[in-house]
Amino acid sequence: MGLGVYQSLFDVFLLNCGFAFSQFIVLRAGVFSIASAAYAGIGGYATAILVTRYGVSAPVAVAAATALGLIVAGVLSIPLARLRGVYQAIATLAFVEIVVSLGFYAEDLTGGAMGINGIPKLVGTGTLCVALGAVLYLMVAIDRSGLGRAFDTVRQDETVAGSLGISVQRSHAIAFIISGGIGGLFGGLQSLYVYSIEPQQFGFALLVSMLASIVLGGRGTVIGPIIGTAILTALPELARPLAENRPLIHGLLLIVIINYLPHGVADSLALLRRRRRAANAV
């Protein structure tokens, strides 16, 4: 393998990290949203259409994709923050399916099942690093703020959150909107990286791989999605049988992790460290 292979693997890792953070932020706030794949689709198509059809420059197109993600998520959040648990999951799944089916249906705009081809490759490792860096900064800022504390409380116990004056609905809505922005941003960046997009790639499979990296990594610490994505991206490269059976391994990992390490790798390590430090202190 040459260096180029590793670089493109690293690029894929950066893109998947971005998607994972779109999924992470909602789960962190206790929202069962799986709409991130839809935001990625919306951002991806918006960017591809703006660049290939209207000759818009890459930064403007990606900014528009991000804004569109924010707006769509903002509109969605109004009705969805009223729902809970499995109902949120089903509603957002329906939304993903609506976006995918529109991708197929609106041929004039999206190219239908053929998708959009010949998108110029205007994004490289550097741009992806900058974008992920910005997302990481946002995540750490939230983590250290009252907003992060509110998210953590809502995720763990909505009744307690209410009793402390935290509005569950507002927290959910904010998480929704951030998730939409990140999803739109990385959907747009992906379009300018992969040459062609089609509706099917924003469906159930993408949604599962985003969820898998969060479950594997953890939903409580910012490093979690990075660890989860790193493992899932690297695993198929380690051995050929692993690559051939990727869905099987994803499936087994999901079952084993959620049953035996329900907080994911990073959160479990953090908890272990806290326990050990506490044991030393007391």
């Binding site: 059976n245 869905p247 994803h250 499936g251 999901l254 079952i255």
Partner: peptide, 17 residues
Amino acid sequence: EFGAIISSIGANLVLVS
């Protein structure tokens, strides 16, 4: 509630593959 969604997605992937 959350765990079962994840776990059953896993089971689905295993059976389908």
